[in-house]
Nucleic acid binder design. Structure first.
Lengths: 326, 326
DNA sequence: CCCTATTCGGCAAACGGTTGCAGTCAATAG
DNA sequence: CTATTGACTGCAACCGTTTGCCGAATAGGG
């Protein structure tokens, strides 16, 4: 049916091994023969069957990219960049969504394992132990998490958080609410630490609320806690929460940024399009996607070393923050 | 290295073919033997190598999903649903982004062809001719487009558009701007036709502007044309454009929905989170993703029939539309 | 108790490539 | 002119699974 290496061999009048070599180690074949083979291949529109060569070489030229929730605006830019970068390197990528479920995450990795050379795990929900165990069979790169022995890409939210606190303090805010996300994620921890040290240094009060759901609704409910705390500024877990906070505040007749300033995290489309445009701690998600693929490819190529890349975050100031009310 | 069918065979004391049959046609093997094989497989944590079986069966159990732009908020819900649905059916999906470029779309399909059983093309940029040609080698399902001989999933924006016009006319608007996207897409056409006939039926003026880029910026520039036209309502090509229109209007001191009503298309997160919350023609993107995979799997299974599914759109009324100013 | 129909399970040849090994041939050295 | 070397290329085994074919064993019927 499809054209195979044998068809090309026949057309070029050589043995299949010569055709194979023409593609995989061209220097081993005489240039005249090579030309002949390439011409025949071209003529027949031959395309090697990756799956077949994977059988002998062990290289599938495929990668897995596993994220918690494709529809969460945080992920698409990362997926897009990872996939584009992989393609440049002649890799295709399986994208899968675990629906935030550790069980299905593990199951997924297991079934994917044979078909990929490695997997990028973005903000995995699995325990470190489980990941380490899986990591013995297959190269992994984790994003926004550290796992012993595995390469990691970290977006250092600490820096952005510090900038945010400084920005708010500079605007005269003396009491800031930190509305963290649901659990003990690496990000949350970083953020908490940075906020604590920056506020202390600047002599500003820090109030930690929640935890709330990392959704718009979570933000709406967090808005009440913000008002109770008497703070005039909020740093939310992510843009969605921030938008929810703004909505909750507006519902109570509180103006943003007039009376309360709000800072989000992630720099998603949603935040850019929100009115007021969200001041946010920008995550370098496209860079993270590219870097993750890069590290993964290195690991695949044999570098058994666990590399680590830390990407900086920085504050993007827009319209949801302003001077503290006097 | 990895555990193969041979290891299982050895452990269970049977021939490899028996192991193979245990999985692919269990009824052909004696239940006692089957138990023994399954036990051994379980014990060794055996997982069949899909790529290897693809070699003989011709079924890769992989699908391709090609979209124009992963980061465009329209696509992620579709990707998420398609991928989840495929997984239930024991299929994995390659997701790829063409950056709106027909060239790379075709190239992509070619290299993917050997590794997948079929491909879902969402709003492809390729010419019908090119798609038909490719369709001879591989099952395809196209979304929001019709191509001779191929299954298609169509989101009938006509219905939603009619509802939108009725909604606006009901609010007293007598002149409506339609701000379409880049020309000649199936959607644009549908939309134009429905808007024309609904406005005519209701005795309302229809002004078609643009075309503008299908982006927020495109919307901002469209805002000027809206004001020039003297219309009091706009139906934009998509949510992003709608948000841009609102922004452009606000910049000129025009209130939405006080002075001008704005309707978007797609029902993306961006629109839901926008303030005012966007009235929008909701596209059933998750359903489209599932249906596309469903039709594709049917085509793969042998139904050479080109099925067609039309999904209804409907108007979701939120806060960006209101009574026409008097 | 023998014969035939079934049911099982082993054998081996694919599927489309890759690669170690060995053979061919011409060029170069001695 | 012969021996050696190096550059090519053919041969065949192998990667992990599937599947048509065939023989063995078992059961059922007469």
């Amino acid at each position: 049916m499809a054209v195979t290496i044998r068809d090309v061999a026949k057309a070029a009048g050589v043995h299949v091994s010569t055709v194979s070599r023409t593609f995989s180690s061209p220097h081993l074949v005489n240039s005249a023969t090579r030309e002949r083979v390439l011409a025949a291949a071209q003529r027949l529109d031959y395309r090697p069957n990756r799956a077949a060569s994977a059988l002998t070489t062990g290289r599938t030229h495929n990668l897995g990219l596993i994220v918690a929730d494709i529809a969460n605006p945080f992920f698409p830019p990362l997926i897009k960049a990872a996939q584009a970068y992989a393609r440049e390197r002649e890799y295709h990528v399986f994208v899968a969504d675990t629906d935030e479920d550790p069980q299905s995450e593990e199951e997924l990795i297991q079934t994917l394992a044979k078909q990929v050379d490695g997997v990028v795990l973005v903000a995995p929900r699995l325990t470190n132990l489980a990941i380490e165990r899986l990591g013995m069979d297959l190269p992994f790169v984790v994003v926004n998490r550290r796992v012993k022995g595995l390469s990691a890409v970290l977006m250092d939210i600490g820096h952005g958080t510090t900038e945010a606190v400084e920005h708010l303090a500079g605007l005269g805010h003396r009491r800031i609410v930190l509305a963290p996300g649901p659990r003990a994620s690496w990000s949350s921890e970083q953020m908490g630490r940075a906020a604590a040290s920056a506020t202390e240094r600047l002599g500003v009060d820090l109030v930690v609320t929640g935890p709330n759901a990392p959704t718009e609704q979570g933000g709406v409910t967090a808005a009440a806690e913000v008002l109770d705390s008497g703070a005039t500024a909020v740093i939310a877990y992510n843009d969605l929460v921030a938008i929810g906070v703004i909505e909750g505040l507006n519902d109570r007749g509180v103006d943003v940024p007039g009376q309360v300033s709000v800072v989000g995290v992630d720099d998603t489309v949603a935040g850019r399009l929100n009115r007021p445009k969200l001041t946010t701690i920008a995550m370098p998600t496209p860079a993270a996607g590219r870097t993750a693929v890069d590290l993964l490819l290195q690991a695949v190529a044999g570098g058994r070393t666990a590399a680590q890349a830390t990407l900086e975050t920085s504050l993007t100031i827009r319209d949801s923050t302003g001077p503290a009310p006097s």
